[in-house]
Amino acid sequence: MPTITMPELQFGEVFANIDLLLEACGLTLALWAVALAAGLSGGLLVGLARISPRRWIAWPARGYVELFRNTPVLVQLIWFYYALPVLSGIQLPAFAAAALALSLNASAYCAEIYRGGIQSVAAGQWEAGRALGMGRLRLLRRIILPLAVRRMVPAFTNRAVELAKNTSVASIITVHELMYTARLFSSQNYIPMETFTVVAMIYFLLIYPFTLASYALERRFAAGRA
């Protein structure tokens, strides 16, 4: 029977070293920004490939999307950090491996958002464009995407939130971002409860503005439609 002691929390210790944690946020943010930018641009290409009428373009794109959506992000990170070097002969630094894996992961999810958004544009818009004699690409660029992007923005914001949470997994392959630093700090000072509580709060403060923005965008979209 273990004796239960009431906790004496030492949040002061954590706040005394808060600069350590805040500095580590830099790498978290960098990882987030890189993967988000790559996901938004790469996702567009994959999304367009997904809806291509040519099977030899559409099917590999679908395979890529399904592969990344149906495997855990931790497996992806581990694969790019530990397995890929065996194949390529080049050991990627942890940050590069994490950035690569998260970028490919984000691209797969963003591709589905692009695809859904484009397909949600009413058939009448395609017909109207074609009636004007527009080619497929021009039609996409001038008519369909501008219409679709507005509907996609809340979904992208949502994806950005999921991605931010995923960056913490990079700590497992030793990227020295916020989560890694927190584990190190907590094991050196024996105050895991306080450390992880504060770290959870830091993540919340980083991420929640995006969630609030997605609420606002969804409301605006709903109001615009009515």
């Binding site: 239960i4 002691t5 906790p7 931010a164 409860m193 509580t197 959870a200 993540y203 919340f204 991420i207």
Partner: peptide, 27 residues
């Protein structure tokens, strides 16, 4: 719900594994 939806799961894994038990002297 807002707190847990907007924080990484890994933090909570560590919080429940190391944080909570250690604060109460348990494992």
């Amino acid at each position: 719900t807002e707190f847990y939806r907007n924080t990484p799961p890994l933090v909570h894994f560590f919080w429940f594994f190391y944080g909570l038990p250690m604060a109460f002297g348990l494992t």
